[in-house]
């Protein structure tokens, strides 16, 4: 059953996951603990955005090429982030987080200023309002998490 854990860090030091990050730096810190939750959320967003973009591009690409390509790009960024965090690649994760934050801010602003350019919604439209603003909060959480541990 549930075993009591005094402190997250203490429990982590004995897990095999902390030792699996061979090669790349700090898999045990970036991809463990709260980092695991980030990886899970990014994984689900990569799946959701990727599947959505694949369907849209395959079936109705001409409706809104820009929006659909952006959806696919967003899915790619989420995928890179999930893998980089899981493998403990801090630098790649930081870069992807920056791209993600820039993407959601730029696309979010553009979609409000010039709605005509985005006839179909992307994950980043309206600062991610279609996804309870998770796309806006995620990169901030990611950057916070990545900058906190060294």
């Amino acid at each position: 059953m549930n075993e009591r854990v005094d402190e997250a860090g203490e429990a982590r030091s004995t897990t095999p996951s902390a030792a699996t990050g061979s090669g790349t730096e700090g898999a045990g810190t970036v991809g463990a603990g709260p980092g695991r939750v980030l990886v899970a959320v990014y994984g689900i967003f990569a799946l959701a955005a990727g599947a959505r973009a694949a369907v849209q591009i395959a079936r109705q690409f001409d409706d809104a090429p820009l929006a659909y390509v952006l959806s696919a790009f967003a899915a790619l960024v989420y995928l890179v982030l999930a893998v980089a965090l899981a493998r403990g690649n801090r630098v790649l994760a930081l870069v992807a987080c920056g791209v993600e934050l820039a993407g959601v801010l730029i696309v979010g602003t553009l979609s409000l200023v010039d709605p005509g350019a985005f006839p179909k919604a992307t994950v980043w439209s309206g600062f991610g309002s279609g996804y309870v603003f998770i796309p806006l909060v995620l990169p901030l959480l990611g950057l916070f998490w990545l900058s906190r541990r060294k």
Partner: peptide, 27 residues
């Protein structure tokens, strides 16, 4: 997606022997 997510979450959550394991399951 629905068929893939639970087993992957279980795998990912069990590997983390702290409070953040169940947090993965919550996601």
């Amino acid at each position: 997606g629905t068929v893939v997510i639970p087993p992957v979450a279980a795998f990912w959550g069990v590997g983390e022997r702290s409070r953040w394991g169940p947090a993965v399951i919550a996601v």
